[in-house]
């Protein structure tokens, strides 16, 4: 069995990858994927911590993860709609073009 610290290291790494993606990427779809990676890091953490007591898996964490996957799906649906409209207005998916709002 892999010890819990390994799982924690993995989920923190996943979180950092998500933040790195949000900071450096310029494509709108990639930013959305960064958000999904962040949510999945949290979901993974819930799953790994649910089985921290040997022989018992807590159903609370699994139900949270199920609901959280649904919420993440609806966030990405709204995001994709906004990205489609942004593409129609600007003709590009580059976020550097989206800086007409200033001040």
């Amino acid at each position: 069995m892999i010890a819990p610290p390994h799982y924690l290291v993995f989920s923190f790494t996943l979180y950092m990858i998500g933040i790195y993606c949000l900071v450096t990427k310029r494509n709108m779809i990639r930013l959305l994927l960064g958000i999904e990676i962040l949510i999945n890091a949290a979901n993974f953490n819930f799953i790994s911590l649910a089985s921290s007591i040997p022989g018992l898996i807590d159903p609370l964490a699994l139900s949270i993860v199920t609901v959280s996957i649904g919420l993440a799906a609806s966030v990405s649906a709204v995001a994709v709609i906004i990205i489609v409209y942004a593409y129609r207005h600007y003709g590009t998916l580059d976020v550097r073009m989206l800086k007409r709002l200033k001040g």
Binding site: L31, L32, V78, A79, I82, A86, L98, L101
Partner: peptide, 8 residues
């Protein structure tokens, strides 16, 4: 543009 910034 504002909504995309807000969403992310």
């Amino acid at each position: 543009e504002a909504a995309f910034k807000y969403l992310i």
